[in-house]
Design a protein around this nucleic acid. Structure first.
Lengths: 151, 151
DNA sequence: TACTAAACCTAGTAATCAACTAGGGTAAGT
DNA sequence: ACTTACCCTAGTTGATTACTAGGTTTAGTA
């Protein structure tokens, strides 16, 4: 799974917006507080607004705030409008592929992959990240042996 | 996670090789039995050989066979030499990124993502796929509610 | 009413990657 | 010698990634 710069920046910005509570935060403030390229971030914020995750206000005293509470926005909610489905096989949904012969059961593997991604990304909310308290099932994954080492 | 054509084809071909047991299988036979583009497949098989997953024999009666038993080759073993690490954040390993402020704990999320991918891809072997009997922990994922529906 | 802050929009660009294809060289059997 | 089949280098086309430039519109403030 390749987490694109776009998605990484988006989640970080969303965390910062969540952290500000009700006050609107400007794109520039987000860019400098998280160290993100300003113009690129602007276009991402726009996408997030169109996706219904942010509300914006123009003009002086303007900025962005969450369209829902931080508890109601998962990481998957942010990824999908920006990068598309969590898992795809050659541009197809895992359940759409069809395999023959010895590889007939490969489809189950890709479905399992998607399912496992969902069990993290659809469960972790912005509120969890900002508070630094991830759900137990997710913490369990990060504390597995070798979870922090490269392969 | 985007499963590239390359990886998809590679796993399918490896399944077909595994299915043939000890007999060497030609690239052409693999291409036609799995419906893959012949020349593209050839370059993939070459990569797999360089990665130490396949052994090849030239000339008449030649072809490919597994370098290890089907039980000892996981899907992750196939993905990594072709597409690189299972999870990357903007080209970095999840444990390498460092986040500040409200997004400080985002790193844990990406590590959890990688861990969850590993729990599928490092566990399923070619033997499992060919036999159609995936490990229990993986089957559990495919039988979750909505595991087969798009979001 | 002017001024200014800030979101909004269109467009463009350089570099990389994905998914192939072409065509010849080399080794191994018959 | 002949054929089969792997091996190797190179190239192509289109899309995607990660940005940047520059102007337009809206909304508060002096």
């Amino acid at each position: 799974m390749y987490i694109s710069a776009k998605v990484d920046y988006a989640v970080r910005a969303m965390c910062a917006v969540a952290d500000a509570g009700d006050r609107p935060v400007t794109a520039e403030a987000l860019a400098s507080s998280q160290g993100l390229p300003p113009k690129f971030l602007e276009s991402i914020l726009n996408d997030l607004r169109r996706a219904g995750l942010l509300r914006s206000q123009r003009g002086a005293e303007g900025g962005y705030r969450l369209a829902r509470t931080a508890k109601e926005i998962t990481v998957a909610d942010i990824i999908r409008p920006l990068d598309g489905p969590l898992a795809e096989v050659r541009g197809l949904r895992p359940e759409a592929a069809n395999y023959e012969g010895a590889a007939a059961h490969l489809q189950d593997v890709w479905v399992a992959v998607r399912s496992s991604l969902r069990s993290v990304l659809e469960v972790v909310t912005l509120a969890d990240i900002v508070a630094g308290k991830l759900p137990n099932s997710v913490v369990k994954l990060t504390t597995k042996a070798d979870a922090w080492v490269s392969r």
